[in-house]
Design a binder for these strands. Structure first.
Lengths: 223, 223
DNA sequence: TTCGCTCGTGAACGAAATGTACGCAATGAT
DNA sequence: ATCATTGCGTACATTTCGTTCACGAGCGAA
Protein backbone atom coordinates (compact mmCIF):
# COMPACT_ATOMS: atom_id res chain seq x y z
CA UNK A 1 0.00 0.00 0.00
CA UNK A 2 1.13 3.51 -0.85
CA UNK A 3 0.37 5.94 1.97
CA UNK A 4 -0.63 9.48 1.09
CA UNK A 5 -0.55 12.66 3.15
CA UNK A 6 -3.10 15.27 2.07
CA UNK A 7 -2.14 18.91 2.49
CA UNK A 8 -5.06 21.21 1.65
CA UNK A 9 -6.34 24.24 3.54
CA UNK A 10 -9.97 24.05 2.47
CA UNK A 11 -11.84 21.54 4.54
CA UNK A 12 -14.23 20.48 1.81
CA UNK A 13 -11.53 19.99 -0.81
CA UNK A 14 -9.41 18.03 1.66
CA UNK A 15 -12.28 15.68 2.40
CA UNK A 16 -12.96 15.24 -1.32
CA UNK A 17 -9.31 14.43 -1.97
CA UNK A 18 -9.32 11.93 0.86
CA UNK A 19 -12.30 10.10 -0.59
CA UNK A 20 -10.77 10.18 -4.04
CA UNK A 21 -7.49 8.65 -2.90
CA UNK A 22 -9.27 5.91 -0.98
CA UNK A 23 -11.18 4.95 -4.11
CA UNK A 24 -7.95 4.12 -5.95
CA UNK A 25 -6.79 0.55 -5.23
CA UNK A 26 -3.39 0.30 -3.59
CA UNK A 27 -3.52 3.70 -1.90
CA UNK A 28 -4.30 4.68 1.69
CA UNK A 29 -4.45 8.02 3.47
CA UNK A 30 -1.78 8.54 6.12
CA UNK A 31 -3.11 11.86 7.36
CA UNK A 32 -4.35 15.29 6.52
CA UNK A 33 -2.88 18.76 7.13
CA UNK A 34 -4.46 22.21 6.80
CA UNK A 35 -1.33 24.36 6.78
CA UNK A 36 2.35 24.09 5.92
CA UNK A 37 3.36 24.11 9.58
CA UNK A 38 0.78 21.44 10.22
CA UNK A 39 2.27 19.29 7.47
CA UNK A 40 5.81 19.72 8.78
CA UNK A 41 4.66 18.70 12.24
CA UNK A 42 2.99 15.56 10.94
CA UNK A 43 6.01 14.66 8.80
CA UNK A 44 8.24 14.65 11.88
CA UNK A 45 6.79 11.32 12.94
CA UNK A 46 4.86 10.13 9.87
CA UNK A 47 6.62 8.96 6.71
CA UNK A 48 4.12 8.76 3.87
CA UNK A 49 5.22 7.69 0.40
CA UNK A 50 3.48 10.57 -1.33
CA UNK A 51 2.23 14.04 -0.45
CA UNK A 52 -0.79 15.46 -2.22
CA UNK A 53 0.19 19.08 -1.89
CA UNK A 54 -1.98 22.12 -2.55
CA UNK A 55 0.45 24.89 -3.46
CA UNK A 56 -1.80 27.64 -2.12
CA UNK A 57 -1.48 27.34 1.66
CA UNK A 58 -2.40 30.03 4.21
CA UNK A 59 0.94 30.23 6.01
CA UNK A 60 3.42 29.48 3.20
CA UNK A 61 3.65 28.53 -0.43
CA UNK A 62 3.54 24.82 -1.17
CA UNK A 63 6.88 24.93 -2.94
CA UNK A 64 8.47 26.49 0.16
CA UNK A 65 7.22 23.49 2.08
CA UNK A 66 8.77 21.27 -0.56
CA UNK A 67 12.09 23.06 -0.24
CA UNK A 68 12.04 22.68 3.53
CA UNK A 69 11.53 18.96 3.13
CA UNK A 70 14.37 18.60 0.65
CA UNK A 71 16.69 20.64 2.85
CA UNK A 72 15.89 18.28 5.72
CA UNK A 73 16.75 15.31 3.56
CA UNK A 74 13.16 14.16 3.12
CA UNK A 75 12.84 12.58 -0.32
CA UNK A 76 9.10 11.90 -0.06
CA UNK A 77 7.40 12.17 -3.45
CA UNK A 78 5.10 15.11 -4.08
CA UNK A 79 2.11 15.62 -6.31
CA UNK A 80 1.30 19.31 -6.66
CA UNK A 81 -2.24 20.63 -6.91
CA UNK A 82 -2.90 24.22 -7.84
CA UNK A 83 -5.20 26.47 -9.74
CA UNK A 84 -2.36 28.69 -10.94
CA UNK A 85 -1.95 28.51 -14.71
CA UNK A 86 1.60 29.81 -14.57
CA UNK A 87 3.91 27.44 -16.40
CA UNK A 88 7.08 28.85 -14.83
CA UNK A 89 5.66 27.53 -11.58
CA UNK A 90 5.78 24.09 -13.18
CA UNK A 91 9.50 24.52 -13.74
CA UNK A 92 10.12 25.48 -10.13
CA UNK A 93 8.07 22.52 -9.01
CA UNK A 94 10.04 20.12 -11.18
CA UNK A 95 13.27 21.48 -9.73
CA UNK A 96 12.04 20.63 -6.26
CA UNK A 97 11.22 17.10 -7.23
CA UNK A 98 7.48 17.39 -7.75
CA UNK A 99 6.64 14.31 -9.79
CA UNK A 100 3.09 15.13 -10.82
CA UNK A 101 1.30 18.41 -11.41
CA UNK A 102 -2.48 18.61 -11.34
CA UNK A 103 -4.54 21.69 -12.18
CA UNK A 104 -7.69 22.57 -10.23
CA UNK A 105 -10.44 21.81 -10.73
CA UNK A 106 -9.85 18.16 -11.51
CA UNK A 107 -12.05 15.12 -11.87
CA UNK A 108 -11.65 11.85 -10.06
CA UNK A 109 -10.45 10.25 -13.27
CA UNK A 110 -7.67 12.79 -13.62
CA UNK A 111 -6.41 12.16 -10.10
CA UNK A 112 -6.73 8.43 -10.49
CA UNK A 113 -4.67 8.49 -13.65
CA UNK A 114 -1.91 10.46 -11.95
CA UNK A 115 -1.89 8.15 -8.95
CA UNK A 116 -1.71 5.08 -11.15
CA UNK A 117 1.16 6.57 -13.13
CA UNK A 118 2.97 7.22 -9.88
CA UNK A 119 2.37 3.66 -8.74
CA UNK A 120 3.76 2.31 -11.98
CA UNK A 121 6.81 4.53 -11.58
CA UNK A 122 7.46 3.11 -8.11
CA UNK A 123 7.16 -0.43 -9.37
CA UNK A 124 9.47 0.16 -12.29
CA UNK A 125 12.22 1.51 -10.02
CA UNK A 126 12.47 -1.61 -7.91
CA UNK A 127 15.53 -3.44 -9.20
CA UNK A 128 18.58 -2.57 -11.25
CA UNK A 129 18.76 -1.28 -14.79
CA UNK A 130 20.59 -3.05 -17.56
CA UNK A 131 20.87 0.04 -19.69
CA UNK A 132 19.69 3.54 -20.50
CA UNK A 133 16.51 2.06 -21.92
CA UNK A 134 15.25 0.90 -18.57
CA UNK A 135 16.01 4.23 -16.94
CA UNK A 136 14.07 5.98 -19.65
CA UNK A 137 11.18 3.61 -19.31
CA UNK A 138 11.04 4.16 -15.56
CA UNK A 139 10.92 7.91 -16.06
CA UNK A 140 8.38 7.54 -18.82
CA UNK A 141 6.02 5.88 -16.37
CA UNK A 142 5.45 9.36 -14.97
CA UNK A 143 4.56 10.62 -18.40
CA UNK A 144 0.98 11.70 -18.85
CA UNK A 145 -0.86 9.36 -21.13
CA UNK A 146 -3.04 11.79 -23.05
CA UNK A 147 -6.13 9.62 -23.01
CA UNK A 148 -8.37 12.16 -24.76
CA UNK A 149 -9.04 10.95 -28.32
CA UNK A 150 -8.45 7.48 -29.65
CA UNK A 151 -5.43 7.32 -31.95
CA UNK A 152 -6.12 7.32 -35.68
CA UNK A 153 -7.04 3.94 -36.99
CA UNK A 154 -8.81 2.74 -33.88
CA UNK A 155 -12.51 2.44 -33.15
CA UNK A 156 -14.24 2.59 -29.82
CA UNK A 157 -16.40 -0.44 -30.60
CA UNK A 158 -13.49 -2.66 -31.62
CA UNK A 159 -11.48 -1.44 -28.64
CA UNK A 160 -14.22 -2.47 -26.25
CA UNK A 161 -14.49 -5.89 -27.85
CA UNK A 162 -10.76 -6.47 -27.62
CA UNK A 163 -10.50 -5.12 -24.09
CA UNK A 164 -13.45 -7.26 -23.03
CA UNK A 165 -11.89 -10.41 -24.44
CA UNK A 166 -8.57 -9.54 -22.83
CA UNK A 167 -10.24 -9.24 -19.45
CA UNK A 168 -11.58 -12.76 -19.86
CA UNK A 169 -8.03 -14.16 -19.91
CA UNK A 170 -6.13 -13.17 -16.76
CA UNK A 171 -3.34 -15.60 -17.63
CA UNK A 172 -2.72 -13.82 -20.92
CA UNK A 173 -3.67 -14.26 -24.59
CA UNK A 174 -1.85 -13.88 -27.87
CA UNK A 175 -2.95 -11.41 -30.49
CA UNK A 176 -3.73 -14.33 -32.78
CA UNK A 177 -6.07 -15.90 -30.22
CA UNK A 178 -7.87 -12.65 -29.47
CA UNK A 179 -8.35 -12.02 -33.15
CA UNK A 180 -9.88 -15.43 -33.71
CA UNK A 181 -12.15 -15.13 -30.70
CA UNK A 182 -13.42 -11.69 -31.62
CA UNK A 183 -13.57 -12.30 -35.32
CA UNK A 184 -10.85 -9.97 -36.57
CA UNK A 185 -7.39 -10.56 -37.96
CA UNK A 186 -4.29 -10.93 -35.87
CA UNK A 187 -3.03 -7.60 -37.19
CA UNK A 188 -6.06 -5.70 -35.99
CA UNK A 189 -6.12 -7.43 -32.64
CA UNK A 190 -2.47 -6.56 -32.22
CA UNK A 191 -3.08 -2.89 -32.97
CA UNK A 192 -5.64 -2.61 -30.20
CA UNK A 193 -3.68 -4.73 -27.75
CA UNK A 194 -0.66 -2.53 -28.34
CA UNK A 195 -2.77 0.50 -27.60
CA UNK A 196 -3.93 -1.08 -24.37
CA UNK A 197 -0.32 -1.81 -23.46
CA UNK A 198 0.62 1.80 -24.20
CA UNK A 199 -2.05 3.10 -21.89
CA UNK A 200 -1.05 0.72 -19.13
CA UNK A 201 -4.11 -1.51 -19.33
CA UNK A 202 -2.22 -4.55 -20.59
CA UNK A 203 1.18 -6.07 -20.11
CA UNK A 204 3.24 -7.76 -22.81
CA UNK A 205 4.92 -11.01 -21.81
CA UNK A 206 6.75 -13.45 -24.08
CA UNK A 207 5.72 -17.08 -23.83
CA UNK A 208 8.43 -19.48 -24.96
CA UNK A 209 7.27 -22.42 -27.05
CA UNK A 210 8.89 -25.71 -27.93
CA UNK A 211 10.60 -24.19 -30.90
CA UNK A 212 10.56 -20.98 -32.88
CA UNK A 213 10.09 -17.37 -32.03
CA UNK A 214 8.26 -16.92 -28.73
CA UNK A 215 4.63 -15.98 -28.69
CA UNK A 216 3.73 -12.57 -27.29
CA UNK A 217 0.83 -12.79 -24.83
CA UNK A 218 -1.04 -9.83 -23.40
CA UNK A 219 -2.14 -9.88 -19.78
CA UNK A 220 -4.85 -7.55 -18.45
CA UNK A 221 -3.45 -5.08 -15.96
CA UNK A 222 -5.96 -4.29 -13.26
CA UNK A 223 -4.80 -1.07 -11.65
CA UNK B 1 21.54 30.43 -25.17
CA UNK B 2 21.36 27.91 -22.37
CA UNK B 3 24.47 27.97 -20.20
CA UNK B 4 25.74 24.72 -18.75
CA UNK B 5 28.03 24.04 -15.78
CA UNK B 6 29.95 20.78 -16.02
CA UNK B 7 30.72 18.95 -12.78
CA UNK B 8 32.99 15.96 -13.39
CA UNK B 9 36.05 14.84 -11.47
CA UNK B 10 37.87 13.11 -14.30
CA UNK B 11 39.69 15.60 -16.45
CA UNK B 12 39.28 13.66 -19.69
CA UNK B 13 35.56 13.05 -19.24
CA UNK B 14 35.02 16.69 -18.32
CA UNK B 15 36.73 17.84 -21.50
CA UNK B 16 34.71 15.37 -23.57
CA UNK B 17 31.47 16.60 -22.03
CA UNK B 18 32.46 20.18 -22.72
CA UNK B 19 33.05 19.47 -26.39
CA UNK B 20 29.81 17.52 -26.60
CA UNK B 21 27.75 20.36 -25.13
CA UNK B 22 29.32 22.90 -27.45
CA UNK B 23 28.36 20.79 -30.45
CA UNK B 24 24.66 21.09 -29.60
CA UNK B 25 23.12 24.29 -31.03
CA UNK B 26 21.72 26.68 -28.44
CA UNK B 27 24.00 25.57 -25.61
CA UNK B 28 27.14 27.13 -24.14
CA UNK B 29 29.47 26.08 -21.33
CA UNK B 30 29.45 28.39 -18.30
CA UNK B 31 32.23 26.63 -16.45
CA UNK B 32 33.67 23.39 -15.18
CA UNK B 33 34.13 21.99 -11.67
CA UNK B 34 36.14 18.98 -10.46
CA UNK B 35 34.62 18.56 -6.99
CA UNK B 36 31.39 19.31 -5.17
CA UNK B 37 33.00 22.11 -3.18
CA UNK B 38 34.37 23.51 -6.41
CA UNK B 39 30.88 23.52 -7.91
CA UNK B 40 29.36 25.24 -4.88
CA UNK B 41 32.05 27.94 -5.06
CA UNK B 42 31.39 28.58 -8.75
CA UNK B 43 27.63 28.67 -8.20
CA UNK B 44 28.01 31.50 -5.69
CA UNK B 45 28.61 33.98 -8.48
CA UNK B 46 27.65 32.05 -11.62
CA UNK B 47 24.03 31.22 -12.44
CA UNK B 48 23.93 28.60 -15.18
CA UNK B 49 20.63 27.27 -16.48
CA UNK B 50 21.69 23.64 -16.25
CA UNK B 51 24.23 21.54 -14.36
CA UNK B 52 25.69 18.44 -15.98
CA UNK B 53 26.37 16.57 -12.76
CA UNK B 54 28.45 13.44 -12.33
CA UNK B 55 27.05 11.74 -9.24
CA UNK B 56 30.36 10.14 -8.32
CA UNK B 57 32.42 13.03 -6.96
CA UNK B 58 35.54 12.71 -4.80
CA UNK B 59 34.39 14.88 -1.89
CA UNK B 60 30.63 14.23 -1.81
CA UNK B 61 27.86 12.44 -3.62
CA UNK B 62 26.30 14.34 -6.48
CA UNK B 63 22.84 14.10 -4.93
CA UNK B 64 24.18 15.70 -1.73
CA UNK B 65 25.32 18.59 -3.85
CA UNK B 66 21.84 18.77 -5.35
CA UNK B 67 20.27 18.86 -1.91
CA UNK B 68 22.59 21.65 -0.82
CA UNK B 69 21.52 23.65 -3.82
CA UNK B 70 17.82 23.14 -3.18
CA UNK B 71 18.24 24.00 0.49
CA UNK B 72 19.87 27.27 -0.56
CA UNK B 73 16.94 28.04 -2.85
CA UNK B 74 18.84 27.38 -6.05
CA UNK B 75 16.38 25.95 -8.57
CA UNK B 76 18.96 25.40 -11.31
CA UNK B 77 18.10 22.39 -13.44
CA UNK B 78 20.24 19.28 -13.15
CA UNK B 79 21.09 16.47 -15.50
CA UNK B 80 22.62 13.52 -13.64
CA UNK B 81 25.38 11.36 -15.12
CA UNK B 82 26.38 8.14 -13.44
CA UNK B 83 27.49 4.59 -14.08
CA UNK B 84 25.41 3.21 -11.18
CA UNK B 85 22.68 0.90 -12.42
CA UNK B 86 20.68 1.23 -9.24
CA UNK B 87 17.12 2.29 -10.05
CA UNK B 88 16.36 3.45 -6.50
CA UNK B 89 19.00 6.09 -7.14
CA UNK B 90 16.81 7.31 -9.98
CA UNK B 91 13.96 7.84 -7.54
CA UNK B 92 16.12 9.84 -5.15
CA UNK B 93 17.35 11.91 -8.05
CA UNK B 94 13.83 12.65 -9.23
CA UNK B 95 12.89 13.74 -5.72
CA UNK B 96 15.70 16.28 -5.78
CA UNK B 97 14.55 17.72 -9.07
CA UNK B 98 16.97 16.01 -11.40
CA UNK B 99 15.32 16.42 -14.77
CA UNK B 100 17.41 14.02 -16.84
CA UNK B 101 19.31 10.88 -15.99
CA UNK B 102 22.07 9.60 -18.23
CA UNK B 103 23.98 6.33 -17.78
CA UNK B 104 27.71 6.10 -18.48
CA UNK B 105 29.06 5.39 -20.92
CA UNK B 106 26.95 7.45 -23.29
CA UNK B 107 27.31 8.52 -26.88
CA UNK B 108 27.13 12.06 -28.19
CA UNK B 109 23.74 11.28 -29.68
CA UNK B 110 22.37 10.26 -26.29
CA UNK B 111 23.53 13.49 -24.64
CA UNK B 112 22.30 15.57 -27.55
CA UNK B 113 18.86 14.02 -27.32
CA UNK B 114 18.64 14.74 -23.60
CA UNK B 115 19.80 18.33 -24.07
CA UNK B 116 17.28 18.91 -26.82
CA UNK B 117 14.50 17.46 -24.70
CA UNK B 118 15.50 19.84 -21.94
CA UNK B 119 15.51 22.77 -24.34
CA UNK B 120 12.04 21.87 -25.52
CA UNK B 121 10.89 21.67 -21.90
CA UNK B 122 12.17 25.18 -21.26
CA UNK B 123 10.44 26.53 -24.33
CA UNK B 124 7.16 24.86 -23.49
CA UNK B 125 7.12 26.44 -20.03
CA UNK B 126 7.34 30.00 -21.25
CA UNK B 127 3.80 31.35 -20.96
CA UNK B 128 0.65 30.32 -19.19
CA UNK B 129 -1.34 27.13 -19.50
CA UNK B 130 -4.96 27.04 -20.52
CA UNK B 131 -5.52 23.58 -19.10
CA UNK B 132 -4.15 20.33 -17.81
CA UNK B 133 -3.26 19.33 -21.35
CA UNK B 134 -0.58 21.98 -21.68
CA UNK B 135 0.92 21.11 -18.32
CA UNK B 136 1.11 17.48 -19.35
CA UNK B 137 2.67 18.42 -22.66
CA UNK B 138 5.36 20.45 -20.95
CA UNK B 139 6.24 17.61 -18.59
CA UNK B 140 6.15 15.11 -21.43
CA UNK B 141 8.86 17.04 -23.21
CA UNK B 142 11.27 15.93 -20.49
CA UNK B 143 10.25 12.34 -20.65
CA UNK B 144 9.77 11.83 -24.36
CA UNK B 145 9.94 8.20 -25.29
CA UNK B 146 13.34 7.00 -26.36
CA UNK B 147 13.93 3.83 -28.29
CA UNK B 148 16.50 1.71 -26.54
CA UNK B 149 18.60 0.20 -29.31
CA UNK B 150 18.94 -3.35 -28.06
CA UNK B 151 21.05 -5.51 -30.39
CA UNK B 152 19.13 -7.40 -33.04
CA UNK B 153 17.88 -10.74 -31.84
CA UNK B 154 17.38 -9.68 -28.23
CA UNK B 155 14.18 -8.73 -26.44
CA UNK B 156 13.78 -6.35 -23.54
CA UNK B 157 11.48 -8.72 -21.66
CA UNK B 158 13.79 -11.70 -21.94
CA UNK B 159 16.77 -9.56 -21.04
CA UNK B 160 15.08 -8.47 -17.84
CA UNK B 161 14.22 -12.05 -16.95
CA UNK B 162 17.79 -13.22 -17.51
CA UNK B 163 19.33 -10.23 -15.75
CA UNK B 164 16.97 -10.71 -12.83
CA UNK B 165 17.87 -14.36 -12.46
CA UNK B 166 21.56 -13.54 -12.73
CA UNK B 167 21.28 -11.06 -9.89
CA UNK B 168 19.82 -13.80 -7.71
CA UNK B 169 23.08 -15.78 -7.94
CA UNK B 170 26.00 -13.69 -6.73
CA UNK B 171 28.25 -16.76 -6.74
CA UNK B 172 27.63 -17.27 -10.44
CA UNK B 173 25.41 -19.44 -12.67
CA UNK B 174 25.87 -21.37 -15.86
CA UNK B 175 23.90 -20.56 -18.98
CA UNK B 176 22.31 -24.00 -18.74
CA UNK B 177 21.04 -23.32 -15.22
CA UNK B 178 19.71 -19.87 -16.04
CA UNK B 179 17.90 -21.24 -19.06
CA UNK B 180 16.21 -23.94 -17.04
CA UNK B 181 15.21 -21.53 -14.30
CA UNK B 182 13.76 -18.97 -16.69
CA UNK B 183 12.21 -21.45 -19.06
CA UNK B 184 14.35 -20.91 -22.15
CA UNK B 185 17.03 -22.96 -23.80
CA UNK B 186 20.69 -22.84 -22.90
CA UNK B 187 21.43 -21.14 -26.20
CA UNK B 188 19.07 -18.28 -25.57
CA UNK B 189 20.26 -17.83 -22.00
CA UNK B 190 23.80 -17.74 -23.29
CA UNK B 191 22.94 -15.05 -25.86
CA UNK B 192 21.65 -12.71 -23.20
CA UNK B 193 24.35 -13.52 -20.68
CA UNK B 194 26.96 -12.78 -23.31
CA UNK B 195 25.28 -9.46 -23.96
CA UNK B 196 25.37 -8.66 -20.27
CA UNK B 197 29.06 -9.58 -20.22
CA UNK B 198 29.66 -7.31 -23.22
CA UNK B 199 28.05 -4.37 -21.48
CA UNK B 200 30.02 -4.98 -18.30
CA UNK B 201 27.10 -6.17 -16.20
CA UNK B 202 28.32 -9.77 -15.89
CA UNK B 203 31.64 -11.52 -15.58
CA UNK B 204 32.54 -14.83 -17.21
CA UNK B 205 34.39 -17.26 -14.96
CA UNK B 206 35.22 -20.91 -15.73
CA UNK B 207 34.31 -23.43 -13.06
CA UNK B 208 36.31 -26.65 -13.17
CA UNK B 209 34.52 -29.92 -12.52
CA UNK B 210 35.80 -33.39 -11.73
CA UNK B 211 36.20 -34.21 -15.35
CA UNK B 212 35.38 -32.78 -18.74
CA UNK B 213 35.37 -29.31 -20.18
CA UNK B 214 34.95 -26.62 -17.50
CA UNK B 215 31.60 -24.99 -17.05
CA UNK B 216 31.31 -21.28 -17.79
CA UNK B 217 29.51 -19.42 -15.02
CA UNK B 218 28.33 -15.83 -15.16
CA UNK B 219 28.62 -13.60 -12.11
CA UNK B 220 26.67 -10.35 -11.72
CA UNK B 221 29.01 -7.38 -11.79
CA UNK B 222 28.10 -4.67 -9.32
CA UNK B 223 29.64 -1.35 -10.21
C1' DT C 1 -25.80 9.30 -58.72
C1' DT C 2 -20.97 9.66 -59.09
C1' DC C 3 -16.66 11.20 -57.98
C1' DG C 4 -13.20 11.74 -54.54
C1' DC C 5 -11.59 11.40 -50.10
C1' DT C 6 -10.69 9.22 -45.59
C1' DC C 7 -10.46 5.53 -42.48
C1' DG C 8 -10.44 0.84 -40.54
C1' DT C 9 -9.17 -3.77 -41.87
C1' DG C 10 -6.52 -7.85 -43.41
C1' DA C 11 -3.37 -10.54 -46.74
C1' DA C 12 1.24 -11.08 -47.58
C1' DC C 13 5.98 -10.71 -46.89
C1' DG C 14 10.45 -9.98 -44.89
C1' DA C 15 12.63 -9.89 -40.36
C1' DA C 16 13.26 -11.41 -35.68
C1' DA C 17 13.64 -14.46 -31.64
C1' DT C 18 13.96 -18.98 -30.22
C1' DG C 19 15.25 -24.18 -30.11
C1' DT C 20 17.72 -28.38 -32.15
C1' DA C 21 21.66 -30.63 -33.59
C1' DC C 22 26.26 -31.40 -34.17
C1' DG C 23 31.17 -30.54 -34.32
C1' DC C 24 34.79 -29.12 -31.52
C1' DA C 25 37.28 -27.43 -27.35
C1' DA C 26 38.96 -28.09 -22.71
C1' DT C 27 39.89 -30.84 -19.05
C1' DG C 28 41.30 -35.38 -16.35
C1' DA C 29 42.67 -40.16 -16.64
C1' DT C 30 45.48 -43.82 -18.56
C1' DA D 1 50.20 -38.94 -26.28
C1' DT D 2 45.74 -40.69 -26.50
C1' DC D 3 41.12 -41.39 -24.89
C1' DA D 4 36.94 -40.53 -22.31
C1' DT D 5 33.92 -36.99 -20.71
C1' DT D 6 31.61 -32.88 -20.43
C1' DG D 7 30.05 -28.63 -21.98
C1' DC D 8 30.74 -24.69 -25.32
C1' DG D 9 29.69 -22.36 -29.61
C1' DT D 10 27.47 -22.07 -34.08
C1' DA D 11 24.70 -23.20 -38.34
C1' DC D 12 20.07 -23.63 -39.59
C1' DA D 13 15.26 -24.96 -39.01
C1' DT D 14 11.03 -23.11 -36.97
C1' DT D 15 7.57 -20.13 -35.52
C1' DT D 16 5.78 -15.80 -34.78
C1' DC D 17 6.12 -10.88 -35.15
C1' DG D 18 5.66 -6.34 -37.19
C1' DT D 19 5.01 -3.57 -41.25
C1' DT D 20 3.52 -2.37 -45.69
C1' DC D 21 0.09 -1.84 -49.00
C1' DA D 22 -4.19 -2.61 -51.34
C1' DC D 23 -9.15 -3.02 -50.75
C1' DG D 24 -13.76 -1.77 -49.61
C1' DA D 25 -17.02 0.76 -46.82
C1' DG D 26 -18.79 5.19 -45.54
C1' DC D 27 -19.52 10.08 -46.26
C1' DG D 28 -19.78 14.67 -48.18
C1' DA D 29 -19.89 17.54 -52.31
C1' DA D 30 -21.06 18.45 -57.01
Amino acid sequence: MISVLIVEDEEIAAEANRRYVLRVPGFQVAGSARTGADALRILRHEHPDLILLDLNLPDMHGLDLARSLRAAGNLCDIMAITSARDLTMVRSAVSLGVTQYLLKPFTFDALRQKLQQYKQFRESTAGAATGQGEVDRALNALRAATRSPLPKGLTQATLEAIAGELGRHPEGVSAQAVGTLIGVSRVTARRYLEHLAETGLARRVPRYGEVGRPELVYQPEHL
